[in-house]
Design a protein around this nucleic acid. Structure first.
Lengths: 215, 215, 215, 215
DNA sequence: AATGAATGAGCATTCATTCAT
DNA sequence: TATGAATGAATGCTCATTCAT
């Protein structure tokens, strides 16, 4: 989010006064590769077992790294989880920003489709981030509300850019509905398989397209 | 799925092959009261701390019961969690059954409202049940999908009863959409507070009402 | 210190509001014996290796108890250390109280000797307690100063009882000197062996005797 | 005991059989300054946290030196601690040597005062050295007893020089008492603050003065 | 039956020390 | 020679579950 020299961008620097523990940025090539491996291993294990059940030992092992290395970069379990959440946030924010950049050239149907696709495209990462977020009440780092709010605001921005005539509070309310619709579509996709799944998804897309087409 | 042979209904029997441990049915008044207290304590503590973080010892203490007593009725942590999920399922199923019983007398708007209210009315219990469910992959007991499917099927039944003319696969697809809409409304409610919250909820209700009114 | 029903008196009850962790009192015979063993093992290991270096695992092993048992009674390392310090405090306070009870019947030389003997008799326990105390800055429980002050005050009391004519501030100053003399004698005893050790000790005792005899 | 062949004297060479690791002597100006900084940082951190709790990483950081540099000069934690103890020993020995050099010109009261001042003047360093010494039983390096004995012997020497008529074993015994009196005065000073502190210290000085004046 | 003390595998985390760069 | 990232054994502590009383 905040711009940083060049790094994998997933690891925020920690200029905080009272040293809230933060992920350390790897300085050498080897470190960068290792951090990526650790992050991936963390994602896998957290996704498989949940935040509490996942063990740092297994995460390190999965990454083929010694436990000390894991702690070198992520001084505790929470920091690792936060880094994963941040990675998800960046991905989604980047996707929304890409839509915003092209907002002038697309119609309602396209906008609906592209918005709906954002969360669907990151479904797995999203589900992981959500579970990590609410497995850790009171923890420092990106709070669930903050994340949601930031995404919703981006959607509102896109709407305003897309239809400059739109009143501001109108855009607010629409962004809430749209965001919820995006989340719901993910859920519709996630459900294993059931009679009428395809139709349900089509209904949903159709509804959102109409929602945006009718202004 | 629906009703169980005879038990307090919250405690499923264990017809599994290798005798998966199950909740024991209390036999006397005192036992029944105690089980209720234990269940409530479990709900509270699981909700506060999450499945892994909650400790059996604290749950027993909160219920004012000795730990041995807790294990008397719920031979392990999973069984307790399953019982809580089952309790939620019963409540929602009962609510849907109540709607079905009156399906002849209500119009689309009423049906929409009553359906939407079902999950909202059990929002807290639902959120607990969901968190318990996905904190325990691979665990025995009611899997999330099974629960969802059972509810969805009930909705489809209601639709068929309500509009007998409705083709079966049409009802299937609609039930999926409706169920998703119900879940989404809960999420819309749960979100802390945000600009346009009330409007968003109204939009949503309105949309579902229209969905049912237009056949 | 505070009176308690009957227990080993080393384990203070914990009626604190914000649950500062405290030693749990054993309820059954087996538990009482085990706590005594744990305390002794703790004393041994702490004395041998110091507070930080001593490991809970070794303490438990030395007591022939599983680690879980150790934690049952002493919920953390600090509590165990505090219990040991408290045990020492009780012993010394009891010894001083015994002197006070007989203060009417003894002269200056006897008083000097009996006071000097108090710390010498508990030299090992004292050295352990001191090391435990200053290995743990900021920890809850009996602070070093508090302990010292409590002992010094007892000495002042004894002096006042012994020579009722003594002005209060005179007694205060004398108690400080006497307490220091008591501590010094312990150190004189503790030193391995050296030429003139016996004489040095005799000098010291003589000096204190004179100090008390000359009023 | 006294002076070492050539080195910065703080860093003892290692003539031991199985080459016990020893501090390396810095060769250039930069090295000397760095060693001093490391030593100071070590003193600070050991004093603040105790031997075990202090971390080599923090010591290096406090000295503004990389950890590798610390290990360059002090191949392990024990060597660093030993160097600090040795530094303390040198300071006190030097102070005693200064008294010895002037022994002809001073009377009993002055001698008493100057001796008493030696330890008081190095109270902080002394307390650090003692804590380092007994935090590491069985460790190689200067044992507490050796240090003590060396200082006591110096005191005895001073006494013999001061009053050549003094019998040797008389001087021995007196040196023990004096040394103990010196230590006790430090303790009297160290105690926070208490009623009668000033008087107690005055008593003590007076007593030692008398002890030396009465031959 | 009811109770709660006992058990010990398992977890997060630390840090002295090494060694590739 | 100087540096600091990497390493992994070791530590304090937890808690589901059992079983003696």
């Amino acid at each position: 989010m905040a711009s940083q020299k060049s790094s994998s961008a997933t690891l925020p620097p920690a200029p905080q006064t009272v040293q809230a523990p933060t992920a350390k940025e790897p300085k050498r090539k080897r470190g960068i590769a290792r951090v990526a491996k650790l992050l991936d291993a963390g994602a896998t294990v957290f996704a498989e077992q949940g935040y509490k059940a996942a063990t740092m030992t297994e995460i390190a092992a999965r990454a083929g790294a010694p436990i000390g290395s894991l702690y070198q970069f992520f001084p505790n379990k929470d920091v690792l989880a936060d880094a994963l959440v941040a990675r998800y946030a960046e991905h989604v924010e980047a996707a929304l920003d890409r839509i915003r950049a092209q907002v002038a050239e697309i119609d309602g149907i396209q906008l609906a489709d592209r918005l709906l696709d954002v969360l669907v495209a990151h479904a797995a990462e999203r589900s992981l981030a959500l579970s990590l977020l609410d497995a850790r009440w009171e923890q420092p780092g990106v709070r669930p509300g903050i994340l949601r709010e930031s995404l919703r605001r981006r959607i509102a921005e896109i709407l305003c850019l897309w239809r400059p005539a739109l009143a501001d509070d109108q855009a607010q309310a629409m962004s809430v509905v749209l965001f919820q619709a995006m989340k719901s579509l993910v859920q519709l996709h996630e459900e294993k398989r059931y009679p009428g799944k395809a139709e349900a998804i089509a209904h949903w897309r159709g509804w959102v397209q109409r929602y945006l087409t009718e202004i």
